[in-house]
Amino acid sequence: MAAVLLLSACGNSGNAGGNAGNTAGNAGGKSLGDQVKHEIIGIDPGAGIMKAASAAIEEYGLSDWTLIEGSSAAMTATLAKAIKSEQPIIITGWTPHWMFAKYDLKYLEDPKKVFGEAEEIHTVVRKGLKEAHPEAYEFLERFEWTSDEMGEIMTAIQEGQDPAEAAKAWAESHSDRVDAWTADIQPVNGDTFKLSYVAWDSEIASTNLIQYILESRLGYKVTALQVEAGPMWTGVANGDVDATAAAWLPLTHADYWDKYKDQVEDLGANMTGVRTGLVVPSYVEANSIEDLK
């Protein structure tokens, strides 16, 4: 999921000696902002985390920082480059994400709760889906899994495996989980079904898994549309898309939920305990967003 803030390392404001704003060993003693030119680089403007990042700039008095639109792929590439050279960097990160398995990262504390408490990923479907596709509806209503399970697919994809193949391999090696989700559901005969999702690593993993199960276990012919968050919600609300398993609530997609909640059906959380916020490599001394001043 979401945005990236390329900041620089900063000392903890509570460190003895007034070390706030600097990282141990910084060349020339440059401040956090100076090291990264006070640029905050995010992802697509439709992502709720971009709104939260803008709010954080205001709430924490980071008036010198500029939020710049970007992409998830650019963020992880920049993160990898920074970590390789042990340079300070701050990203607006989220879990589940494969980067937490690959790198030693930490969230910055958010005492003002701008990024909210832990979130959930929900499955949202179009009105009338239960009557039109009861088999798919039953499966989607049962579908729930853990961040560790999702992480297995995300890591495989990050290491170069095709998303569809990674999802298939996971389903085959966790057949007991798939059996529980599909037990006693009668397969259909080639009925068409349409999913939508945003191009976040977590949603790529979940949507490919759902597509594989719908096709291999339940007999559907599935189309999966990768779109921005706005069209994802609009498609389900208008009935052009049958379902999405990529609704981050209550914060990330709050605006879309407020707008479309009466036009869609929420089947509940397919994953709990997810989180968004500002993330840094462990070697960065900052521990709180307040330190970024």
Rank of each mutant, 00 (worst) to 15 (best):
A2I: 11
V4S: 13
L6Y: 14
G11D: 05
S13T: 07
G14W: 09
G21E: 05
G21F: 03
G25D: 07
G28F: 09
G28L: 09
S31W: 00
S31K: 01
H38N: 14
G42R: 02
G46N: 09
I49F: 07
I49G: 10
A52M: 15
A52R: 12
A53D: 09
S54V: 08
E58T: 13
Y60P: 01
L62F: 00
W65H: 02
W65C: 01
T66S: 13
L67Q: 11
A74D: 09
M75A: 10
L79G: 00
A80T: 12
K81R: 15
A82I: 06
A82E: 06
E86T: 12
E86P: 06
I90S: 11
G93C: 04
H97R: 06
A101Q: 13
Y107A: 04
K112V: 08
G116A: 03
E119C: 10
E119N: 15
I121M: 10
T123V: 05
K130W: 00
H133C: 05
F139N: 12
L140K: 03
E144N: 12
M150P: 00
G151P: 04
T155C: 09
T155V: 15
I157H: 04
G160W: 05
Q161W: 07
D162N: 10
W170G: 00
A171K: 00
A171W: 00
S173A: 15
S173P: 04
H174E: 09
S175C: 07
T182K: 00
A183F: 05
I185A: 08
P187Y: 15
G190L: 02
D191K: 10
F193S: 02
S196H: 02
Y197K: 01
A199F: 08
D201V: 02
D201S: 14
T207N: 11
N208Q: 10
L209N: 04
L214H: 00
S216A: 15
R217M: 04
L218F: 11
G219H: 07
Y220P: 00
Q226G: 13
G230R: 15
P231N: 05
V236P: 00
V236R: 00
A237R: 01
V241I: 11
T244Q: 06
A246G: 09
W248D: 07
P250C: 06
L251I: 12
D255H: 13
Y260C: 06
V264G: 04
A269T: 01
N270Q: 11
M271I: 06
R275I: 06
T276M: 12
V280S: 03
Y283P: 03
V284L: 06
N287Y: 05
I289E: 10
